[in-house]
């Protein structure tokens, strides 16, 4: 979901995406983790790739979301919000939510 969200915000190269995810607060995200993940998403039809010429080296692939990728992001976001609100409700009910703990 984080990969799709980052690519929805801005299409990127695999290495650039790893850097952006790390900078966004996901901790140390290696290219070795991101590249296989991108491969899976691309094979699932959620990502589109396009060759982009680079003035500094060989042409590189830029990944962006397909229509199916945007739909998947929307679904996963709704699922995430629902599950986090459910967990929050349980935490509030049990009194362990930050600031409400007795």
């Amino acid at each position: 979901m984080c990969v799709l969200a980052a690519l929805d915000q801005q299409p990127s190269h695999a290495y650039e995406l790893a850097t952006r995810l790390a900078e966004a607060g996901l901790g140390e995200v290696s290219y070795g983790t991101v590249y296989p993940l991108i491969t899976r998403l691309r094979r699932s039809g959620l990502l589109h790739e396009q060759q982009q010429l680079s003035p500094l080296g060989p042409a590189r692939k830029v990944f962006s979301l397909t229509k199916a990728g945007r739909a998947a992001l929307t679904d996963w976001l709704a699922l995430w919000q629902r599950s986090t609100s459910d967990v929050e409700a349980v935490l509030r009910a049990t009194g362990v939510w930050a600031g409400e703990r007795r």
């Binding site: 190269h13 290696s30 290219y31 983790t33 080296g57 060989p58 042409a59 590189r60 692939k61």
Partner: peptide
């Protein structure tokens, strides 16, 4: 191409792969 670009930013392939 990706490792080459990362190398240009001073990161070794081993570090980038993780």
């Amino acid at each position: 191409a990706d490792l080459h670009a990362a190398y240009g930013q001073g990161r070794t392939p081993e570090t980038v792969l993780g």
